[in-house]
Write a protein that binds this DNA or RNA. Structure first.
Lengths: 197, 197
DNA sequence: AGGGTGATGGGACCAAGTGCCATCACATTG
DNA sequence: CAATGTGATGGCACTTGGTCCCATCACCCT
């Protein structure tokens, strides 16, 4: 037994998600979240820097992606390195247990501009992290940018697909497939030529 | 002559930019911004929905991009349509007069997470707007996503290049060139093959 | 001259976020 | 067993962003 009720952070996340679903993000007070978790406002801000962050806690994604890219075989192309990172992230962060939570979280975020704003910032962080990791592999700057951008897009799309069902492929498979589809799509947008003769 | 001092919005923007440069974003109060512009807090929030938005006023970009894409020749590929939108936006929004302002604005935004967050959200808006416009041209969903994403990336990079010098190419040229470079880069990241034999 | 209109000023008010100090539960040490 | 230390929590005061409502002012129109 711990000193107080254990898992304060997780209780706060759960309380916040429930209240956001019930009353909406902007009609929910930090004090209300804390009270539902059996805590106080002070404690809330000791666990999260601000109200939005309660839904963006696990900030390990960027690091996992970077490590995954760094750990890819030296012979891997940029896209293959990104795909390698997807697998890493899938094993550590997108466990099957978080699937339903992901769907609820996503719905709440989509409904509130303030939360979408935070999500956008997190997306930039992921992109930057992947870009740096690719550059460290010797990938030229612009190529690293593009690969990271498409990797982040694949993550986003795959997250939607994955969290929308309770069964089916695990996250890694969905993400790899999505990345492949994006790669294929990017071949069809020719700048100077037409798509068909 | 107007009733009161004219150009209230612009005065607020100028005051805010100056104060953010002098004291930093978080050490500047909305009241201070308003006072420097010869106005009050009430009036500030009548012109801008929140403190961040004072640096993101001209919200015409998304519309201009969408119109530019819609106006591209029917035979244009997705990338060409995006390039067409760059030109439109260049003529209407990125006038030479705003070049120095752009550099100062960019420096302030880069220095403060809260502002970068807002910028990230604006970026999502641009991407979404371009994606929709491309879909309306009949471009398949995924292809539209990728083209819009790379278009937004090109805009971002081009904005940095363009605002970093007081002379040189106008925005449209920089953006088109950047888009071409990204297109070329995207061909070098092969998913299944290697870059060289 | 008198009323309409739109932008502004001012103040009350709520919630987010910060800082400081007291408190409590448990562990450690003598 | 008693004293002390430590880390998580509670509570309170305070600043600031942001909202609301109403009074006021400058100008236009009739």
């Amino acid at each position: 037994m711990a000193r107080w009720q254990p898992n304060a952070s997780e209780r706060l996340v759960a309380a916040a998600l429930e209240l956001f679903e019930e009353r909406g993000y902007e009609h929910t007070t930090v004090i209300e979240i804390a009270e539902r978790a059996g805590l106080t406002k002070s404690t809330f801000f000791r666990h999260f820097p601000d109200k939005r962050e309660v839904l963006f806690g696990g900030d390990t994604m960027a690091g996992l992606l970077a490590k995954g890219i760094a750990a890819a075989p030296a012979t891997a192309t940029p896209f293959e390195a990104v795909a390698h990172a997807m697998d890493a992230v899938s094993r550590e962060a997108f466990t099957p247990a978080r699937r339903e939570f992901g769907a609820r979280r996503r719905a709440v975020i989509a409904a509130h501009p303030e939360l979408r704003e935070r999500e956008a910032l997190k997306g930039l962080g992921l992109t930057a992290s992947m870009t740096e990791a690719l550059k460290r592999r010797g990938v030229p700057d612009l190529a690293a940018c593009v690969a990271a951008e498409l990797g982040a897009l694949a993550l986003k799309i795959a997250y939607e697909c994955w969290s929308d069902t309770t069964d089916g492929d695990d996250f890694g498979e969905v993400a790899r497939r999505t990345l492949g589809d994006l790669q294929a799509a990017s071949q069809t947008l020719g700048l100077s030529g037409r798509s068909a003769p």
